[in-house]
Structures are given as structure tokens and as C-alpha cells.
Design a protein around this nucleic acid. Structure first.
Lengths: 198, 198
DNA sequence: CGTTGGCAACCAACCAGTTGGTTGTCAATC
DNA sequence: GATTGACAACCAACTGGTTGGTTGCCAACG
């Protein structure tokens, strides 16, 4: 293998291993040794490639964010209900990403996240799409609030699986994700197609 | 001060300090030394009273849970919109609790939480109240899903303040919590008073 | 042969949890 | 009202394992 390829390879291995580790344990709980071992790569390579633990975390989150924004777009279809369902599906099949974002949110608290401008533009596009989907009659500020709520609704059951279990009842939780999905679509449509939005 | 009172006092001091520390840094990020220092109590007292770090965390979360369930009840008013608003208000004024629960959720993942039965009964009561508030025509399974969604909606903006800032736009986020609250009430009423719920 | 990637061993700081000795408080007994 | 025993808390040093980060040497590539 050429040197350049080898480099690229170990970077990829490290990023993947780091993603698992960070998703599972968070920044403080993650162990650099474990990441290196999981990647089958020497620990020192982490520092050569990424600087330190936190910068590695940022790289991981950056990657994850790109992936999410590519996978779940709003422009394709005009139905907000279906949009919520797709976010829900995404988080259900790849719970790692959501955990990653939560660790990040908790860690950085109110202080600005790395790469905010980029993310900001990303949401602006979604706001525009949603505004159109709503028929263009809802003021932008309210469209933004609706978008925020939709994203939260879709993510919530995955964020707190334990609470989901408790609220939904022991039996249904694991098996009945399909009903939950349908509920979200229904709930969203009801909320959004109602007569008055101010 | 009597001995019994002194004990109670240091316990309370420790729990309060621990709550701050855990809310801020999570289980892995929290430092036992810092908790002791913050409480103005010797570190060794933590081990005498609570056993170890994680058990202390559980005590803290237990307290927080009691507090939340006492503060935000569903039985008082029949309007689900107002219920959501009250959850929202609670988390806005006391963000510590939500952070605590998130750290807990992330830490324990899918495995059962300490004290699940107790919490379960708590939610059962809320389900009953909500069912009544909805006119008693919605099947219980769907009521449970609605409850889950309502709680999530109310918590979400506080969970990810950074995302809220990005989605809502830099300017509005901090100042316009009132509009957000009204949006939640409106959104909930629209969703819930719609004709069909299956 | 210089540059670049890889590695094992290393290190100093950190951190949860412990120990042993000391001071102060309460309550019962004499 | 002095003595005694049982707690509760304080303090400071210590332990043993962990952890993020570093160094010096070797191998492969170009």
C-alpha cells in the first residue's frame, strides 16, 4: 500500500473506532487506549493525526453531522409528517449519532459549538423547505420553532429509551416502534394542518 | 447542633454540591474532590454516607426525580397544552434536572434505571390524567405515545440550547422564550384536538 | 537517503477510595 | 456535674490503579 493510502486508512480506522467509543462513553468517559485498541492502531497515531482527545471528538462529530444532513433532507418531499418519520427512522437505525450529539450538547452547554456557521446554513435551508411545505403562509419565526419541535419529537424516544419504556409500558416499547412512527406522523400532520398558526 | 442534625446537614450539603457537579460534568466528568470542596465537607464523608461515586449520583437523581414529579403534575388542569408549557417552564428555570436525567440516560443506555417501578407508577398516573383530558376516547396505547411526545417537545429546546439557537436564529433564541412557550401550547392543542386519532 | 508512518515503552499527573489519628457533641450513668 | 462511651466530622497523608500524552527507535516508501 502506498504511504498516502496507509495514512488515509488508519485515519478512517481511528475515526470509526472513536465514534463507537465516544458515542458509548462520552468525552470524559472515553478512553484513548480503548480507541486505539479498537482501531487496531497505535495510540500515538491519534495524537499525530488529531492533536488531542477533544479535537478527535470534534472530528468525529463533524463527520457524523455531515452524514446526518446528507441522509435526512427535507427538500425531497413536502410532507412534514414524513420528514419527522425519516428523522425518527434515522436515529432508530443509527443511535450512535444522536448519542454523540447529546454528549456534545451536554459538554459544551451554552457555549458555541465548533463549526456553528456551517450548521447554521444547513438549518436555514431546512427552514426554507419547511416554510414552503406549510404553504408559505406561516411567518418565518414560527416556521423555525416548528422545525425545532419536529426534530425534538423525532429524536426524543431514542434519547431516553428508558423513559420510553416506562411511559409506553414494558411490553410495547421494543416491539412497537412502528406504531410510534405512525403516531409521530399523525401527530405532526394534526399539529401542522390545523387552521390557525398566528 | 445535635449530632443527628449535623448528619442531616452534611448530607444535604453533599447532595446539593453533588447535584451541581453531576449536572455540570456528568458521572465520568464529576470529581469527588470538587464535590467535597464545594460542600465544605471532608471527602471521606461522601464514602461514609453514600458508598461510592455512582451511588451518590443515584441519590442525587432520585431526589431530583421526586422534586420534578411533585412540581409538575398533570392532574391539576385538563389542558395538555398547559401541561407542556409547565414542563417547559420547569426545565427553563431549573436546567440542572434535565441535564442530570440526560447524563443518566446516556450512562445507563438501554439497561434498566435504578428505581424503575416507582417511576413507572408515576407515569401511569399521568397517563390516566391525560386520557381523561383527551375525553376518554383515545386508546391507552396512543395516549401513552402522546404523553411521551409531549414530554419530549417540552424538554427538547432546553436539551440542545445550541441547536435551538441555530434553528431559531441567533437573535431570538435567548430572548424569545415566551414565543417558544406559546408555540408549544399552540402546537400541542392543534395536534391533540384534531378530529382523528385512530 | 531523507521523509513519513508505526510502535512499544515510558512518564507524570490524576483520581477514586482508604486509613489513622484527632476534635467536638450528645446522652446516659454514677 | 464529672465520667464514660458512642457517634459524627475533620484532616492529611497515602495507595494503587488509571490515563492523557510523549519519546526514541525501527521500517517502509519515494
Amino acid at each position: 500500500m502506498r504511504n498516502a493510502d496507509r495514512t488515509e486508512n488508519t485515519r478512517a480506522l481511528l475515526l470509526r473506532a472513536a465514534r463507537h467509543e465516544f458515542a458509548e462513553h462520552g468525552i470524559a468517559g472515553a478512553r484513548v487506549d480503548r480507541i486505539a485498541e479498537r482501531a487496531g492502531v497505535n495510540k500515538q497515531r491519534i495524537y499525530a493525526h488529531f492533536g488531542d482527545k477533544e479535537q478527535l471528538f470534534r472530528h468525529v462529530v463533524g463527520h457524523a453531522l455531515d452524514e446526518l444532513s446528507q441522509a435526512v433532507t427535507l427538500t425531497d418531499d413536502a410532507d412534514p409528517g414524513e420528514y419527522v418519520a425519516r428523522i425518527f427512522d434515522y436515529h432508530r437505525t443509527r443511535p450512535d449519532l444522536l448519542r454523540l450529539f447529546l454528549w456534545e450538547a451536554l459538554h459544551y452547554g451554552d457555549s458555541p459549538l465548533p463549526g456553528e456557521e456551517e450548521r447554521s446554513r444547513l438549518y436555514d435551508a431546512k427552514v426554507a423547505s419547511l416554510s414552503e411545505a406549510l404553504g408559505g403562509r406561516v411567518p418565518e419565526a414560527e416556521v423555525r420553532r416548528i422545525l425545532l419541535t419536529l426534530i425534538g419529537m423525532a429524536a426524543w424516544p431514542q434519547i431516553t429509551p428508558q423513559m420510553a419504556r416506562l411511559v409506553l409500558g414494558e411490553s410495547a416499547a421494543g416491539t412497537d416502534q412502528e406504531s410510534l412512527r405512525e403516531h409521530l406522523v399523525r401527530f405532526t400532520r394534526n399539529a401542522v394542518t390545523a387552521p390557525e398558526h398566528i
